[in-house]
Simulated scan of single mutants.
Amino acid sequence: MTVHEALRYTKIPLTHGEGELPAVGFGTLIPNSAATEQATKVALDVGFRHLDCAERYRNEDAVGSAMQEMFKSGAIKREEVFVTTKLWNTNHRPERVRSAFEASCRRLQVDYVDCYLIHTPFAFQPGDEQDPRDEHGQVIYDREVTLLETWQALERLVDDGRCKSIGLSDISLEKLKEIFAPARIKPSVVQVESHPYLPEWELLDFCREHGIVMQAFAALGHGLEPSVLQDPVITAIAQHAQKTPAQVSLAWAVQRGTAFLTTSTNRSRIQENFDISSLPEDAMEEIKEHVTTTVRFNQVVKTGVPGFIPQTKAN
């Protein structure tokens, strides 16, 4: 990994795939399509070169339009932007994977995807309804397909050349090990919730050992309580370093060897999240040793259903 003093330019080589993943990434989970398109253009203009998308977000077309506008303007080239998107739970059956991938490519208006992730390790009832429920409101899971079978279908996408790397999202260490061992093409990227309140050190150690990039979503705690950005350790370091608490938390993420995603529709916030620089080693150690709150904000790893759970106080 090449770590720059200006951390925003850090790129992490993909051991099990093609290219390098920019450590600083922009997430596109934005409900409104017009806002998605505008925020994506701002992110690219500011300097973000990694866009994280998903079939589930229902806005890949808006991201695609934003990218094409920037490409046509000559501001940036397609090969300069690392594009990730994800296979949703209702498309886990191998015969559905290729068509789902191709549909994402069409919506994003790209000929290839730099990284394709299985959005969660949970298979839902196949079909057009993204959130299938029974008469009691319970998720209808698909028991006819295994995660390994889905993974093998992703491997075939890599064989075809339009998918440069593959990975997993919202996955536990135990599930990751189940896939890693038999995989013909090993996961390049694992995307999980991670921030100073959920550092996932054991998962990160496994990823380091096996050449997998760990990427953090909700890298700032998603604005929920207890607030990462109001933690006294983080705020004290920010004051001393003349940075914002967000910049401290994001610098910590890159310096410990992970990539991260942030999402915003506010230009100044997007700029702030990009403009990160190195922390002194004693600050890194202080965060590791003295941030004591532990909390998971998103329970998707237990059910496959995305959604942040409001919390009132530290656990």
Rank of each mutant, 00 (worst) to 15 (best):
E178I: 10
A39W: 00
A75H: 00
E200S: 12
L261D: 03
R296N: 11
M67S: 01
K11H: 12
L44C: 09
I309N: 07
G223D: 05
G304A: 09
G223R: 04
K313V: 12
S227N: 10
A66Y: 00
E135S: 14
M284E: 00
S73K: 02
I309C: 07
F217M: 03
I270D: 01
C105H: 05
S172P: 06
A54W: 05
G47N: 04
D231G: 08
W252M: 07
F82N: 09
A236G: 07
S99L: 12
E79A: 06
P121N: 11
L204Y: 02
P245I: 04
V189Q: 05
Y116S: 06
S278M: 14
R56T: 10
T28Q: 08
Q38Y: 11
I309H: 06
T292I: 10
G74H: 02
Q191T: 08
L51A: 01
F122M: 00
T15I: 12
G137V: 06
T28H: 08
I185V: 14
N298E: 13
V63Q: 02
L173K: 09
Q255K: 07
A183K: 04
L44N: 02
E135F: 11
I118K: 04
N315D: 12
R184H: 13
R184D: 13
F260K: 07
I166R: 03
K11S: 13
A6D: 15
S65N: 15
G74P: 02
F122N: 02
F180Q: 11
G167I: 01
E289C: 03
A100D: 09
E95N: 14
D45R: 03
